[in-house]
Design a protein around this nucleic acid. Structure first.
Lengths: 200, 200
DNA sequence: GTATAAACCTAAACACCGTAGGCAACCGAT
DNA sequence: ATCGGTTGCCTACGGTGTTTAGGTTTATAC
């Protein structure tokens, strides 16, 4: 019985691919074992249990999302950067639906405190820097931004929008505008930075 | 073998109770059968499959949420009604965590088009009426409101906030304020209705 | 009372999860 | 190259869950 060259990283990466190809629910120990042509019990040499695989998948997705956010916000500021941040989420959800679904699952303490999660938060902070918020307001603004973006994507991906992609795109723009406006008018800060007026 | 007086409604209601008591994932055909002291196979006289039970649970939760929203927004207008709408969601999620989790699952076409879902949307429209939005903007505003509220609750319930309930309450107020501001400044409408100024 | 429909059961097949112990492959030291 | 120890893979097993098919029992209508 040749060794299949498995490792925790390989199993988690396979889980990510499987999630995107067949959906989050399809990520089972059995399905992963079939993918590597080994028996399910063999995977327990590399991963503690199914939950551990899903935790790893969650963290991998956070890391990839952070990279995409960095890419989409680089060299941008204000509403432009905000749009890049939001757009990165939406693009990631589109291109990696299964990975994105993994991020919607209740996160374990370890995942909440992971380096990848911190990176995403740091990138959001960088985008918010242009809004000149007081330090003690940063956490509230970060939560609002994260909540709104993810809430919108969850709604969109749940099929609540029907097949109206044209209307969804405008809803998206409205949402980004709303966030920008809220941030600029934030209590104790958010001086208008008038890079791009929101005349409608 | 006495008949257990089962019905589809009884099974779905039991699923809701089980979800709130033990979590959404604990809602299985086997667990429900144990609850009624029958064998799992017996439930298929009343429900098509597990997915049908979960669909029913989703719709039941939407109906209950609609009732709570109606209660919390009655006699209120503007930001006050908006706060009531948002508060109803938060209260429901708190008091019925399992039911709420059921509503976060991908919804089936039938559920999206259900009377209960329509009722929730209608109530959101009623709250938005005070903001005097153009008809063609209503759908975008509705999506933003739904997305922000649900997104916030998903974040909060996922443990991302840690145990900082004091800080979560302020984040919540900031989020409601942000929504109110965005709605009042909405393109093509949203005249300031100055019922309660947002001086900070 | 009888006939029928519906509700319940058993049996079975299938899928998934994870543990324990055994065997084979691999690696490092000599 | 050989040997010993470690690690990775397997089998076997016990447990949980899902759903279908067919049989038995209960309830209802006439």
């Amino acid at each position: 019985m040749m060794r299949a060259n498995l490792s925790q990283e390989a199993v988690i990466l396979a889980a990510a691919e499987l999630a995107d190809q067949q959906g989050f629910e399809a990520v089972t120990v059995s399905a992963l074992a079939r993918r590597f042509d080994v028996k399910p019990a063999s995977l327990y040499s590399h991963v503690r249990d199914r939950a551990a695989v899903l935790d790893g998948l969650h963290e991998l997705a956070l890391g990839e999302l952070a990279a995409l956010i960095a890419e989409e916000t680089a060299g941008r500021s204000g509403r432009d950067a905000l749009a890049g941040l939001a757009g990165a989420h939406r693009r990631y959800a589109r291109e990696h639906p299964g990975r994105w679904a993994a991020m919607q699952q209740p996160a374990r303490e370890q995942t909440v405190r992971s380096g990848e999660a911190a990176r995403v938060v740091t990138l959001i902070w960088a985008v918010l820097r242009a809004y000149d918020l007081p330090d003690d307001e940063l956490v509230h603004a970060t939560r609002l931004v994260g909540a709104t973006i993810n809430g919108f994507l969850a709604l969109e991906r749940s099929g609540s929008f029907g097949h109206r992609t044209d209307s969804a795109a405008l809803s998206w723009e409205r949402a980004v505008d709303a966030l920008d406006l809220a941030l600029r008018a934030w209590p104790g800060g958010g001086t208008s930075l008038s890079r791009k007026t929101t005349s409608a």
